[in-house]
Computed example of a mutant assay.
Amino acid sequence: MTFQERPLDRDASSVGAAGGRDTVPTPTSNSVAVHLNGLRRRFGGVQALDNLDLEMAPGELIALLGPSGCGKTTALRVLAGLEDADSGRVLVGGKDITELPANRRDMGMVFQAYSLFPHLTALQNVEFGLGLRRVRSAQRRERAGAMLDLVGIGTHADRYPHQLSGGQQQRVALARALAIQPQVLLLDEPLSALDAKVRVQLRDEIRRIQLEVGTTTLFVTHDQEEALAVADRVGVMRAGRLEQLGPPDEVYQRPSTAFVADFVGLSNRLPGTVSGDRVEVLGTALPLVPGAASGIGSGAVNALVRPEAVDLAVDPDGRGRVLAASFLGPTSRVSVAMPDETMVVAQVASALLPELAPGTAVRIELRPVPVVVEAA
């Protein structure tokens, strides 16, 4: 058994809250559907895109998530026109733009690097794209000012990039991308260079602005929490293909493959036995995610169980022994050793930590949450 930790500090209820939107994207007259159809792209011996299909509804924000080299940035660059696909088509608003150069695709882009002109003020940076489109000076200034207000730094319009913090520079870059009123907004890991607190603040601002403006948006990130927090749908990529595409709560709570369950969030790998549509793990019969045992059949497997689906209770007769605990604020993760050398990690309220000192005997119970399995 292995326990693989990913940078995602949330429990199932918080993910459900993030995935179940109180607001939905509001398409505007400028919102368009996007369809990536059968895209293939190879770099030497690496298949970056392998017959990738992706449909985006008007005004939708889709986040592409996956490990390095999975093809998520290549997909964005092909959509932007910065890379040519070996085969396949790119359609925006029903129009085939596969052969159009990047400067004719009407897309706004924000990258990890802020790419601001150092000799221009924030306002002038935002005006730049409008100037290329020959928008009149007064209209440029009005539009740029409105965009800076939208991203929350209108009072910094006359500052140069070196006078702005990293988060403020990224807001200017976002305002510049939105100022041209693009059909599609492309965000390529725009927050990865920022510190954690600013990253959370700005990701929430990006979501607020995207909902307000209604622009169809593709957001590429390696940060699972970002993807789950901002997207209408999350696409998990692997080796150039989509492993799963769905609402954030569905991807987290009902992963379609062991890869998705392992990559998104935290997972215990626990030995179990499949029989029919259930798997027995630590003496508890757990339901399987539909199709989870496809190609595996009955017999010995590893079940991927979320830490928040593990309950602990102090019990002198319990079979488990607490090894260690990690304090994470309102919740903590507790590692428990079982007699067969299996280690189980549970997520508990931090208020319970005083009862769970190392060496404490505990009883483990698994909640009947659907799980995915992989061959043992």
Score class of each variant (00 low, 15 high):
A75H: 05
L123D: 03
P58S: 12
I296H: 07
V184Y: 09
R77C: 01
R41A: 00
H119P: 10
R21A: 14
A48V: 00
L242V: 12
D158Q: 15
R41Q: 04
G19S: 15
S294H: 10
P290K: 02
Q4F: 11
N268Y: 00
V213A: 04
V274Y: 04
L228K: 05
L174M: 14
T98I: 15
R77K: 14
Q169S: 03
V172D: 09
L266T: 14
S267V: 10
G131T: 06
E308R: 02
D50S: 11
G38T: 02
P287K: 05
T221D: 13
K95S: 13
S192R: 07
P255E: 02
T284C: 03
R171H: 03
S350D: 03
S335K: 05
A18R: 11
L132A: 13
R199F: 02
R141D: 11
A376M: 01
P339Y: 01
A309K: 00
S267I: 03
A57C: 07
L164E: 14
R203K: 14
S326R: 08
D84M: 15
S14I: 09
P25A: 10
H156D: 09
D158F: 07
G94F: 07
G19Y: 13
L8S: 14
L228A: 08
S87F: 04
S275C: 08
V90D: 04
E374C: 08
L352Y: 03
V198E: 01
T215H: 04
D195P: 14
L8E: 14
P330C: 00
G16F: 12
P307W: 04
R105P: 04
A193V: 05
T74A: 02
S332D: 12
E280H: 00
D317G: 15
S29P: 00
R306I: 09
A173F: 03
I209H: 07
A292K: 01
G45T: 15
R254K: 12
V151N: 00
V260M: 05
A303D: 05
G69I: 09
I62C: 12
F128D: 01
P248C: 13
P27T: 05
V200G: 00
L187N: 10
V289K: 07
V46A: 10
A157F: 11
R333E: 13
T74I: 02
L211E: 02
R199I: 04
V220K: 10
G152R: 11
G59P: 12
E243C: 08
L366Y: 11
V220H: 06
F117S: 01
T28K: 00
I364R: 08
P330W: 00
L130R: 07
Q183M: 09
S332F: 02
T342I: 11
D50I: 07
L39W: 12
N125W: 08
